[in-house]
Write a protein that binds this DNA or RNA. Sequence first.
DNA 1: ATTGACATTGCCACCGGTGGCATAATATAT
DNA 2: ATATATTATGCCACCGGTGGCAATGTCAAT
Lengths: 342, 342
Amino acid sequence: MANEKITINDIARLSGVSKRTVSRVINQSPKVGEQTKLKVEKIIEQYNYVPDKQARGLASSRSYLLGLVYDNPDALYIDEVQRGILSFCSKKGYELVVHPCRYKSTDLNDNVLDFVRRSKLDGIILLPPASEVDDLASTLDENAIPYVRMVSGYSEKTDDFVMSNDRHAAADMARFLVSLKHQKISMITGPLNYRSSKERYEGFIHTMENMDRALPDQYLIEGTNLYESGIEKGRHLLTLDDRPTAIFCNNDEMASGVLKAAAELHIKVPEQLSVCGFDDNLLASRIIPALTTIKRPVRQMAVYAANKLIAKIESNNPQAVIQNCTVHPELVIRDSTGFNEN
Amino acid sequence: MANEKITINDIARLSGVSKRTVSRVINQSPKVGEQTKLKVEKIIEQYNYVPDKQARGLASSRSYLLGLVYDNPDALYIDEVQRGILSFCSKKGYELVVHPCRYKSTDLNDNVLDFVRRSKLDGIILLPPASEVDDLASTLDENAIPYVRMVSGYSEKTDDFVMSNDRHAAADMARFLVSLKHQKISMITGPLNYRSSKERYEGFIHTMENMDRALPDQYLIEGTNLYESGIEKGRHLLTLDDRPTAIFCNNDEMASGVLKAAAELHIKVPEQLSVCGFDDNLLASRIIPALTTIKRPVRQMAVYAANKLIAKIESNNPQAVIQNCTVHPELVIRDSTGFNEN
DNA sequence: ATTGACATTGCCACCGGTGGCATAATATAT
DNA sequence: ATATATTATGCCACCGGTGGCAATGTCAAT
């Protein structure tokens, strides 16, 4: 099966047409006669011919390579995203090139531009928080580089976005905790300059306010999204004179930290304290007690993103791009939350 | 800075030599006059010229793309490997294309071959368990595709391997548990057809035997490396009439499962039971109690692998390849193990 | 029969590099 | 000085496709 490599010239000769016509068949050009097309396709099939990406790229300045740009320490999230993208793009004949970066670095724009140019990527997918940097998006626009941004929140300009409605999910969490009769509810937010953190924060506290349960200042703390931050802020909250009975964390990492702090202080979860997170990463189901959290359909988002990006690349008219891609995370109730006993 | 793209022809014209000579400079050919070389390099520098990978690839059948082939559900491991490889290969001008696969599928060989051909990859890195399939390695050899295999264990044919001495590390664990005065020690192995599982298994039980502490049959169980398997086998072991006081698991995933089972059965860790794993993935430090485990220097292995692969690709003589790459995992003692109290 | 419009196909240059060989320049031997 | 080896450089074809345009064929309209 794995013969010597066979080129467009071979196919042309074997099917008795010019290579240009074969090229047209490959690219599904409409201006090819029906029977010619069938004849060529048959030969292509028969010899298992696949066009050479490099040659194609050189001639048409395409590479059939997509880039994934991220600055996110959450390996579980990254892995899920990669698998989602690959599941879609590999069947479309694209491959995925990965590119971790430092989203805060001053040369982020140049760095990403370089990345795209060096491998002539056809387009890139941006993950938070890099996806939140509008300046980067502008630069990509200026250079006519197709891209899709995965973000939390929503935007009118849906063309370039795949969105997750974290705000709504955080509101669900607020209602859930209240339904468990908690009176003293606290939240450890992520860095509020991150869009996702802000969405979750606002969704949560606004809902609380609407139920006349506005969070007092000492119950509202900004963390860094890291485990260590969860421990630190957890310790702080749990040693307050009037400690909360429920803590909602911006992500599972910090929620794990809070569990750690609670364990140190011999506070029982969920009997004396309810803890919940956001993401539903692997940790959430493994840790003891298993975390009540919010599951983001990350893989689904990644599939949408790949779909959208390829649509953008392959169509010259932007209308062809699939429409609004918004995804709804949902509450997953496990063992770290319970009725308030007081 | 980001001018119109500048090609080898521009450089040739600007520096007053032929493009062939510029090509020689780029490729560090020795047959270029010293001052010519300097002159051209200066122009290249000045105009920030980078050769086009596709054109280069088309002409020389190289792509400057490396592939990463894996069938491993451990996202943390994969992420670490990716970052390790990238840290080395990006500065050498290579990019990384990722390719999850099903290592058991009957068309693994064809699948991987296809992957390599479609994108004309210069070489690939294989991760366990795919790296353990000798048949795949043979196929790659036959097709003259450069590759490096990351494996647990050792091999005489060090050329193609980056190895981790898991056997030795497992022996350390055996000695550690014995030093804690445990008498009834159990092991949940991974699937013994995996090389890594076998190495850890043998390192552990042989060391136990050498200390006259051979494991009785009922304390030796084969698991699947998955969390659920840890729960199931854990339950089984902990409900034996004469249950063990220490359980060594082939990986952290299963160790987490055992902790879960222990929690269900109200067995206190580490007071009544010591549990330990292998890998030191994120979970290990986050779970409560934090796991005693063995840390594999995964990133280091990945860097070695990239280094070795690129050396193979770039040199025609195999001697240039860096020598023996063996890495030594080490014991990390945390809170899930303690002195046997009986 | 002639012409024009349109659909189909082919020809050739070109994308940006590298390989092989010829040629020019310089050093060494006779 | 001349022949000979050695080094440095240039020329041209080629890698495997695509773009633009010309050529050919078909059919309806004049």
